[in-house]
Amino acid sequence: MRPGRRLLDTVPAWMEAHRDAARRSLQRRLQAPILSLISIAVLGFILALPAYLWVLLDNARALSAHIDHDPRIALYLDAVEPDTVAELEHHLESDARVERWDWIDADEALAQYRERLADPGLLDWLDENPLPDVIDVVPATTDPAALGALRDALAAIAPGAGVVSDDDWVRQLNSLHQLGLRILAVVGALLGLGAVLILALATASELRERQEEIAISRISGATHCFLRRPSLYGGLITGLGGGVFAGMLLLTGIALSRAPLEQAAAAFDLPFRLALPGASHLLTLLLAGLLLGWLGARLGSGHALRDAP
């Protein structure tokens, strides 16, 4: 504690020092608005691209909910004992993974089939009904792993039953979605790394312009933290600006691509509507901007201050 300074003064003084650093950093940006706007624009573009791809992927996944084709599991019961059938029914009632199930009686199925035939008399040639009783299960989930587990559980109860699941399209859509997410993660990480390096370069060159101030401050006893503080606030300002700009780009991009995408979906008879990103997604974009801005400033200032006289 320096003479004449009270402990109670140190916290407000610390806050004032931070406010001053932030204010000075903002002033410096306002003095060179073009360079600052270029940094903000670069960060905005870099953030907006993966965000836009993510919105498309997310909407594509949501598309599966629009398709009127739930995954099904059919249990063919021709070689199953009545006791096992009862056990199956009991299980289907209690399993939370089952949305609903229907018993399709073999005779009813044959009757329905007869109605659809152009010449129902053909069926009279059969000695007996070739169709088995069937339980048609509508699962409560579209998650491929959960569907597989349910199918295995039902097959274990009735080993003699033919268990056929109709969830290939869910698996395909899901694996495509997973692949898309993976590609997005790689692209996002590479772009993020690029953004950090660009912002680090900008921070380092800004610090080079402040070399005399840094030298005088060092001589006057400034710590590394004190010297770096305005740069870190600068990074946060750029990050905030970049995040806001990315959000605007994203909303504009969605607005522009909405009509053609919905027209294309309509051509496939899909009731698809491109949803706008929610507030939480825009907030994530903002936080990503702040994080990248801060990381770039930290990397650039650490490097520049280590080399400064």
Partner: peptide, 11 residues
């Protein structure tokens, strides 16, 4: 004021 800023003096 620079040395006082470094010493985190209040305004």
């Amino acid at each position: 004021a620079l040395p006082l800023e470094i010493l985190a003096y209040r305004r």
